[in-house]
Design a protein around this nucleic acid. Structure first.
Lengths: 245, 245
DNA sequence: ACCTGAACACCGTTCAAGT
DNA sequence: ACCTGAACACCGTTCAAGT
């Protein structure tokens, strides 16, 4: 078998993206204001969670250290263990928060009625956009850091709840006869895998990371997805969606 | 907006999979045979690489420790640094090996001629199957452990080479007029995101992990993908592919 | 109730010294 | 050339003791 296709194309979009990994922002004075609340912190749990997300955002999950985050808030390093039993509990809390945010973003795109291709496409874009705008949350949610079996109850509820929105949307579309009668669970897995794949490859910097281009790919994907699963699909989805280059 | 869809369905396939995380196999006698080669090891680099993959397979990437792997081969812990400059170099080597294996698996499914839906579907299945059979490699390749910018040259070549096979297949299909004239790069991103999504969600245990069911989903996805991107697609792809439940 | 400081058992990595 | 043993600067986590 001969390899023929345009060899250049791969180098133009695989492993390219000039955006540098953002550096930790300079420490502001507020990071050490133990003067105002030397003891009982207002909402230390919340503050620790936010500081953890901030750290992941700037340095990556790998270099998140529980030792550093307490002191950065003007608190001892053991203080964190009053609010999170261990590192995986902290990550589970980040993931649960992420699933809740993702769920809200998806829900916001879905109209009461009628379900349309436009709304479906918007939901796909919303999914990918969430991942691009909150890569720290997304990577914790899907980076394999969490034990998928026995996590904390908060996470065990938030994950499925977010996914259910996708299932519900598909059921809505089926009821409106906008898509065929395939097993909705299988369809949901298919659609989920699609948006998840785009999201993951994007935040891993393996496809374009510019927001506009990502939306273009998401809309392209949604249109192809629709033409694939739609009834009389050849004409109901846009042939050449926005964002194509 | 009211949540209506069958609530049960989510619990039946989100976060389910009884298969326990495999435990480290009991140490065999061969793991400590420093008697045969007390000094100059035959191919220590290769042995270290394999031991690392074995460790990731059983304990996960997170608990891969460079200290442990040398001694497990009957060698001091610093010996590894003669062959890999640091941990990320070791992971890069695992990833490069994985990309080469993946490339070979994909190439094997693609016939010299003519390109068909069957071959396209086989390639999708081969991609997902590779990930399921080599989850350690796959997670290192796509888990965000590697710096996508400046990795070692071996990896920088192997990754794009594997991806190019996908691009070439799409170009072949376009030349045979089996799929439409969309930008092949965009199509390749789309197809790649699809199989990557299925692969990732599967090895993260977020969708079914039984091999037969995964193949079913992969074939389902390939069929829907095809109906979406195929010319006169409604009749050229199988309406109800193998493995649907 | 919530926090602190010191401690324990780990890491990745280095380096003078050995063969 | 390749390997070793000890060392350094880190981790996550615990725990008696403080307020």
């Amino acid at each position: 078998m001969k390899i023929t296709g345009d060899v250049d194309s791969v180098n133009t979009f695989f492993l390219r993206c000039p955006m540098p990994r953002p550096l930790r922002p300079p420490k502001t004075g507020s990071a050490r204001q133990k003067t105002t609340r030397p003891y009982h912190h207002g909402d230390l749990r919340r503050a620790l969670l936010e500081e953890a997300v901030r750290t992941i955002q700037s340095d990556g999950v790998a270099s998140l250290t529980l030792r550093a985050i307490g002191p950065r808030l003007g608190v001892s390093r053991a203080a964190l263990y009053r609010h999170f039993t261990d590192k995986s509990a902290l990550l589970a809390a980040v993931a649960a928060e992420g699933f809740r945010m993702l769920g809200a973003a998806l829900r916001a795109t879905w109209p009461a009625a009628p379900p349309t291709f436009g709304a479906f496409s918007d939901m796909a874009v919303a999914y990918v956009t969430f991942a691009v705008q909150h890569p720290s949350h997304y990577r914790v949610m899907f980076g394999g850091f969490l034990d998928p079996q026995t996590s904390d109850p908060d996470l065990a509820e938030a994950g499925p709840a977010a996914f259910q929105i996708l299932v519900d949307a598909i059921v809505d579309l089926q009821r409106a006869q906008a898509i065929g009668p395939d097993d909705p669970a299988q369809l949901a897995r298919y659609v989920w895998a699609m948006v998840h794949g785009v999201a993951m490859l994007t935040i891993d910097r393996q496809i374009d990371c510019q927001t506009s281009e990502v939306e273009g790919l998401a809309r392209f994907a949604a249109a192809r997805l629709w033409r694939g699963i739609g009834v009389g699909a050849q004409e109901s989805g846009p042939a050449t969606p926005v964002g194509e280059r």
